[in-house]
Amino acid sequence: MSSSLKSPPRRPPANPLSGVRPAERLCHTTGALLVLSGLVHLVVFAVDGGPWYGPVSWRKPVTFGLSFGLTLIAVTWVTSYLRIGERLRTVLLLVFAADCVVEVGGITLQAWRRVPSHLDMETPFDTAVSMTLAVGGGVLAVLLTVFAVASFRRRPAGPVGMALAVRSGFAVLLVALVSGAAMIARGVVLVRTGHQEAAYESTAPLKPLHGVSLHAVLVLPALAWLLSRTSWSEQVRWRTVAVAAGCYAAAVAAAGVWAVLTYR
């Protein structure tokens, strides 16, 4: 077939908010609603009070709403730079968005019921919620791993430094997935062996590592995009992204050391 008949590779728009497709718009809207949910529950916490830390607190719907909302928005945008089939990307994003809603919804439901959302096997209903959240976490891990692999199989498109930012962001995000899986796995083992309270406390050492590594996929590509709007040379922009990626990796490593030192 002549090269003139081949479809040119999809090039993301210079402005990340222009040329948005319906599926992307749905994901952006869903992410914004999840962020709004987190902010609303921050107000609920300010009015209702109660502990900020612990397995039963308003912290969880706040932090999970904000984190899942921002991550959904970030992944929707960042994957526009990946060289994968548009239909496959759309399906993956829609499943990802639905899973984010399930995760935040289950956590929020349990917060209003004043019971733990994770590792709670006290009643059949609580067990069902906990297992749903665990399975949902597994689905999220698979979807994000697929995107991460795609970013390394073919060089992402975009301005100078974007490929490095996207690949670094997904690589760090995989650390968040592994640390999250480790928290759930250890907690489940403790619950199954009759150590319910210890299960809730066991996640503390890994939470900083999980939190720090979760948003590199937004921070680094956003930096690369902002630098593309400057008059700096391509070499300076690439080096800036590289330094930022190195600093982020150092922060993740420090959080990992903290997890090891505080592990009990």
Rank of each mutant, 00 (worst) to 15 (best):
S3K: 12
S4Y: 07
K6F: 07
P9I: 00
P9Q: 05
P9F: 02
P9S: 06
R11D: 06
P12S: 09
P12C: 03
N15D: 13
L17E: 00
L17T: 05
L17C: 01
S18M: 00
S18T: 09
V20W: 03
R21F: 00
E24Q: 11
R25G: 10
C27V: 10
C27Q: 01
H28G: 06
A32E: 10
L33E: 04
L33I: 09
V35Q: 07
S37A: 14
G38L: 07
H41L: 09
V43P: 08
V43T: 10
V44G: 04
V44I: 14
F45N: 07
V47G: 02
W52N: 12
P55Q: 11
P55I: 04
V56L: 10
S57Y: 08
R59H: 15
L66N: 08
S67V: 11
G69Y: 01
T71A: 06
T71D: 02
L72A: 03
A74P: 11
V78R: 02
S80W: 02
S80E: 14
S80P: 03
I84V: 14
R87L: 09
L88K: 14
T90W: 06
T90Y: 03
T90M: 13
F96M: 15
F96G: 06
E103I: 12
I107E: 02
I107K: 00
W112F: 13
V115R: 11
V115W: 02
S117H: 06
S117Q: 06
H118I: 01
E122P: 00
E122T: 15
F125S: 10
D126S: 13
A128T: 14
V129T: 04
S130P: 11
G138S: 10
L140M: 10
A141V: 15
A141D: 04
V142C: 08
T145Q: 05
F147I: 06
V149R: 13
A150V: 11
F152Q: 08
R153W: 05
A157N: 12
P159E: 03
P159T: 07
V160K: 09
V160P: 09
V160R: 10
G161T: 02
L164C: 03
A165N: 07
V172S: 03
V172E: 04
L174E: 13
V175L: 04
L177T: 14
S179D: 10
G180T: 12
A181F: 13
A181K: 08
M183L: 15
M183P: 07
R186G: 15
G187A: 06
V189S: 12
V189E: 13
V189K: 06
L190M: 12
L190W: 08
R192N: 12
T193Q: 15
T193I: 00
H195F: 07
Y200N: 02
T203Q: 11
P208T: 08
G211N: 12
G211A: 15
L218F: 13
A222Q: 01
L223C: 06
R229F: 10
R229S: 12
T230N: 09
S231Y: 04
V236R: 15
R237H: 05
R239E: 09
V241W: 01
V241R: 02
V241M: 03
V241Q: 02
V241H: 02
V243C: 06
V243A: 14
A245F: 01
C247P: 00
A249I: 04
A250V: 14
A251F: 03
A251V: 00
A251C: 12
A251W: 00
A253F: 09
V257D: 00
V257M: 03
A259L: 04
Y263Q: 09
R264G: 07
